[in-house]
Design a protein around this nucleic acid. Sequence first.
DNA 1: ACCTGAACACCGTTCAAGT
DNA 2: ACCTGAACACCGTTCAAGT
Lengths: 230, 230
Amino acid sequence: MVNVGKRSGRPRAGEERLSREAILTAALRIVDDEGIDALTMRRLAATLQVNPMSLYHHLPNKAAVLAGLAELVFAGLELPDPGDAVPWDEQLKEAARAYRNGLRQHPNLALQVLSDTSAVSDVVVVTMEPFYLALDRAGLSPRQIFEAANTLIDFIHGFSLGEASVRAQTFELAPDLLTRVRALPADKAPTLTRIVDGLGVEGLAYDFDDGFESGLSTLTAGIAATARRR
Amino acid sequence: MVNVGKRSGRPRAGEERLSREAILTAALRIVDDEGIDALTMRRLAATLQVNPMSLYHHLPNKAAVLAGLAELVFAGLELPDPGDAVPWDEQLKEAARAYRNGLRQHPNLALQVLSDTSAVSDVVVVTMEPFYLALDRAGLSPRQIFEAANTLIDFIHGFSLGEASVRAQTFELAPDLLTRVRALPADKAPTLTRIVDGLGVEGLAYDFDDGFESGLSTLTAGIAATARRR
DNA sequence: ACCTGAACACCGTTCAAGT
DNA sequence: ACCTGAACACCGTTCAAGT
């Protein structure tokens, strides 16, 4: 056997050591494959072929594992910078799309990620640059930029939450909505009933991509109005 | 002792029986007082002075308890109808404010509520009427109403999630953001740094009420633009 | 420094038995 | 029909002991 030296090259099987990174990677795999409930310290240790207690030398507790996962997801976000070649609102939409796509990579983690304030504020800070850039070009005041960015992020979070929840289960959004609305007493929600019923299954056909684009258009239109009002 | 009859008036102590409603009420109290993690079947049974297994005669499992809680929260929503006395956008904002306030009543449950698709779709159906009403008055097409309502709800959900997460922990948003941004390498996020740094602690002072109103204004402005474009 | 085994104080839930 | 006790198969984490 070659490479018997202490530290050169890929560590031999017996030499592999536990590390925070290795633990988090294994944890992410479990969550992606089997959902957040499948992630237990004991299970995680088992997949790493290690005693459960060994984990505690690298991460203080399970909460830290979850926080670490949220961090991982945000670190995986790659927000492109289309630059000034494109109008500010398209630039803003691109940033939003990239952010949503990042969150979509790990749907089973969406809830954890979106509710982990420290993870959010930690990396949101960096991922927000493209948003600020585009909003600055739109001609907003600093305060308006701050508020518009928050609003946009909130929309993306809410949208992503819904998307992740629906994907976790599997049901058809449109027929379900239609059924529920039709089950309502006639006078309970007249406008809702008229609109939804009028749209029908095909009119309600809900595509998450379209829904997201629709939201982005509404928001950029609203932001444009704010800019004019400055 | 008066009132010894079988069913009239308040049931006597010995007569009280377990019921789905009683269980959920007790569960809600635990979650409100001590957080979602404090809710265990055994703990719940203890506060009801009952054997843990008794609960299973009224609810199939713990997931059903959580789903029931989400349902409770939505059922507690009261969306006022300001009627036509007010312009459509103010009517829409009122519906949004009421919805947010409903979600705020039980911050420890926000995550559960917002990610419980069946609870959401179940009662959202009813609570959406005021939104549809206002959007209809705005002159949108049925499809536009559907999409605008979804966008608005997504924003409220994302906003509420952030609000609940921040309240659960206790830290100051503005100084925290400022600290994080100042810790960034100078060229990492130039626009973000310039804007946030320029605003300073007082400029960043974040009030959730103001943030919500700002989002609502942006969204209604965007919706108004959509209506014009019809 | 890193890993382990045994143990503690919990979980949710099944099942057979009580009334 | 409703409730219970004992039991099963798990949890996260502490602690003292190993190397």
